[in-house]
């Protein structure tokens, strides 16, 4: 079943003290970089490099928080904390969680693209 996503623009703007201009430039940078973050997360998983996986999850955690996506932030935090344990046995779970996080990032990107198109 596909996950639903609702962009909470009001919460994002609250963090930016209502600065629309800043929201647009931050969103544009995120949209440019999002693929690269997801690729690095998957690559770390492929190399079974839990230290890098933890760091990439940490980065995505802060990005998801910046865009007020609490479920995405929590998912990234779970991956970060689990990877910190440095247990190879956790790799299957981490792979499943990472897939969900990448899907979540894609949903966020789609919602942000739509938002930018609407406000243009």
């Amino acid at each position: 079943m596909s996950e639903t996503f609702q962009l909470n623009k009001a919460a994002i703007l609250e963090l930016l003290a209502g600065d629309e201009e800043l929201f647009v430039s931050m969103t544009q940078v995120f949209l440019e970089e999002a693929d690269s973050y997801c690729e690095q997360l998957s690559a770390a998983l492929g190399r079974r490099d839990l230290a890098v996986l933890r760091r990439e999850a940490h980065t995505l955690k802060s990005l998801m928080a910046s865009f007020a996506d609490e479920p995405g932030r929590l998912l990234a935090q779970e991956i970060e904390q689990q990877a910190k344990q440095n247990r190879e046995d956790d790799l299957p779970v981490l792979a499943e969680q990472s897939q969900r996080l990448v899907a979540r990032v894609r949903l966020l990107c789609a919602a942000l693209n739509k938002e930018l198109a609407n406000s243009a």
């Binding site: 600065d19 800043l22 430039s25 931050m26 940078v29 995120f30 440019e32 970089e33 980065t59 802060s62 990005l63 910046s66």
Partner: peptide
């Protein structure tokens, strides 16, 4: 910051000061 988006955000906020 190793994240471009954070660099851009912090830069924008610093310029606003």
């Amino acid at each position: 910051d190793d994240s471009d988006i954070n660099l851009a955000l912090v830069r924008a906020l610093v310029l606003k000061l």
